[in-house]
């Protein structure tokens, strides 16, 4: 099993519903967020191109955060989901330094916090909160090893990219182009 997500940058309108859904579902403290939306504009006027991306932890296959954690608090859960065991985390900040996506933050209670792909929902057969609320249905979640899962179907016939693949982290969120 390998959980992954695909996000259609052509369907996403940048409404930030995914961000709010996550904050509510996971009781994220005010002023913090586990996911966020980036609007990236490139080109020279008048030939401009805009890409909208909902970003979060990439639950990398080769996770630098899991590797550098001195206590084993950062670890892989089922399906390659990267999570932090709060009562093992000492708040040293190594994983925050190690993440090329700046997807982790120091929770006001001291431990490090991040996107969990809503593991508590996934084990019950539900989709992550962000995916389930998306009004344009531009996000797909599922098991990459299952050829019929939403995410496998979504990436089958589309070009996609991952973020900073040159960092060698093997990110598991695919942006459909």
């Amino acid at each position: 099993m390998r959980y992954a997500m695909a996000i259609d940058t052509r369907k996403c309108v940048g409404c930030s519903d995914c961000v709010v859904a996550c904050q509510v579902e996971n009781n994220v403290p005010i002023g913090y967020c586990r996911d966020w939306v980036v609007e990236s504009t490139s080109g020279t006027y008048p030939v401009l191109q805009t890409e909208i991306r909902s970003e979060r932890c990439n639950h990398c296959d080769n996770s630098p955060c899991v590797r550098c954690c001195p206590t084993g608090a950062s670890h892989f859960e089922q399906g390659g989901i990267v999570t932090v065991t709060h009562h093992k985390c000492i708040g040293c900040g190594a994983c925050i330094q190690s993440c090329p996506y700046d997807a982790r933050y120091s929770h006001p209670d001291g431990y490090v916090d991040k996107c969990t792909f809503c593991l508590h929902r996934v084990v019950e057969g539900l989709k992550p909160a962000c995916v389930s609320v998306c009004p344009t249905k531009c996000m797909y979640f599922g098991d990459l090893e299952d050829p019929n899962s939403d995410v496998s179907v979504a990436i089958r016939h589309r070009n996609y990219k991952t973020l900073a693949p040159e960092a060698g982290t093997k990110p598991q969120i695919f942006y459909l182009l």
Binding site: S16, T41, S42, Y105
Partner: peptide, 17 residues
Amino acid sequence: MKEELFVSGRDIPNIDP
């Protein structure tokens, strides 16, 4: 030119900017 904006807003202490 390339310009990136957090359209959802993001100002996490010690992470941003």
